[in-house]
Write a protein that binds this DNA or RNA. Structure first.
Lengths: 236, 236
DNA sequence: AATTGACAGATTGTCTGTCAATCAGCTTGA
DNA sequence: TCAAGCTGATTGACAGACAATCTGTCAATT
């Protein structure tokens, strides 16, 4: 038997482990925009050496998930609204394209899966569970991105979603946003099921536009929040 | 006189220095796809310690300018044609958008500058200087990107251009490519000067499509080239 | 002859420890 | 009250070390 069953398990290095843990921590909101990450503290809580940690931080810096100011160290970026808006603008472009390509290329099986994720999202909406809404919505997109036939779009979208993750979470809590979100995602799903690229593109773009509008409202509610809650008193 | 002319040059750290040097080395073709980068050698030639170098490598890895395989170390990625094609597909989208936005927003001064870069490109074509052609063309785009009003597009485009840089250089050497390139860039310039976004978008997209076709030809000529010319004998 | 097994050298992954440079906040003195 | 200077905390950078892993070679076995 000449089955070529590539068992390469790509050994997990400490650095990768740290990158993932920190990325998850950032995405799940453990660290807030403006928070500083102190190397020695992180080393302690992660149980790794400073060199390893610093390598991981450089990776995250290149992903734009953290900023590193020389001699001040790493911190979670504080986005201006314009920063966020630009991200939504590019998301509009990329997600539109992804949906269009997906509609043209997706398999029946994946349509089925898409459908089930949409259903999961609906349930999360009913249960009023913001965290789960984000998760299921993200999975819904993930299917579309995986089927758009272009890994670069997938990569870039991932990067953009990560950067505005904190806004997504907040805007999901806005009244009616979840309901509209579901309707918009349904429209995308229908267009894809009908294998109508241009309809899918428009639906996806409309979804992003609405998400942006909600994000703006959410943004105005918070504006300049968290700064450095590391036990230190804040100056007024 | 107490002119406070903020001289904060954001202190250049060794790490930044190394990232830039390596990035330039990669872009200028000192390292070829498939080449392995040996840490100890790089430390020696750059005169930095291994931790600093490794941090820099992590940055470049996140930029996708190098790959790091655990226990094998960093190497220049070898792109398949499909990889490259996907990059051109996204470039088409982003450059089209950038040109359109630029046409709507650019100032007269920057149109002037754009014009002069186009002229520089024309001269580089006449002189038959591929390196200079790439440089001037890159500057021409840079103006467009700077004026598109969206830093994310700028960032992503920079990333994509870097990744296919080796192909751009090679395809510029193809017969007639330079001439067509000039014509296409002229079309983009005219559309922007006329402040016609949709015309600019189409011209920019057409430019990328043609660039992709040339890149494909260039790609087929090389296919699976350079492997590890670090002085070591290559096995047949 | 071909495959396997064992070995050696090279390279990376990771850690510890150290020291200088820089920053932020506090104290002191005018 | 404000400016200057000091001090502790933190980062930037390095050297050195050691284990884990990979690569290629060569002899032993089938």
């Amino acid at each position: 038997m000449n089955i070529k069953l590539d068992l390469r398990v790509a050994p997990r290095t400490v650095q990768q482990e740290v990158v993932e843990k920190l990325r998850n921590a950032i995405l799940s909101g453990v660290f807030q925009p403006g928070n500083r990450l102190v190397e020695s503290q992180l080393c302690g809580s992660l149980g790794v050496s400073r060199p390893s940690l610093r390598e991981a931080l450089r990776s995250l810096q290149a992903e734009r998930l953290i900023e590193i100011v020389p001699n001040r160290g790493p911190q979670i970026p504080v986005l201006s609204w314009r920063d966020a808006e630009e991200i939504y603008e590019v998301r509009e472009l990329l997600e539109g394209e992804a949906a269009a390509r997906c509609a043209a290329a997706i398999t029946d099986d994946d349509i089925e899966e898409l459908s089930s994720h949409l259903e999961n999202f609906r349930r999360a909406c009913r249960r009023n569970d913001p965290a789960e809404q984000i998760n299921t919505a993200t999975e819904f997109y993930a299917i579309i991105l995986r089927n758009c036939g272009n890994k670069i779009i997938e990569e870039f979208e991932g990067s953009l979603l990560a950067r505005v993750n904190f806004l997504r979470a907040r805007s999901m809590s806005l009244p009616n946003r979840v309901k509209s979100s579901y309707n918009e995602m349904s429209a995308i799903f229908v267009a894809i099921k009908d294998r109508d690229p241009e309809k899918a593109r428009k639906a996806a773009r409309r979804h992003v536009v609405n998400a942006r509008n909600s994000a703006k409202k959410a943004f105005e509610k918070i504006d300049h929040p968290a700064e450095q809650p590391s036990g230190r008193a804040r100056r007024r």
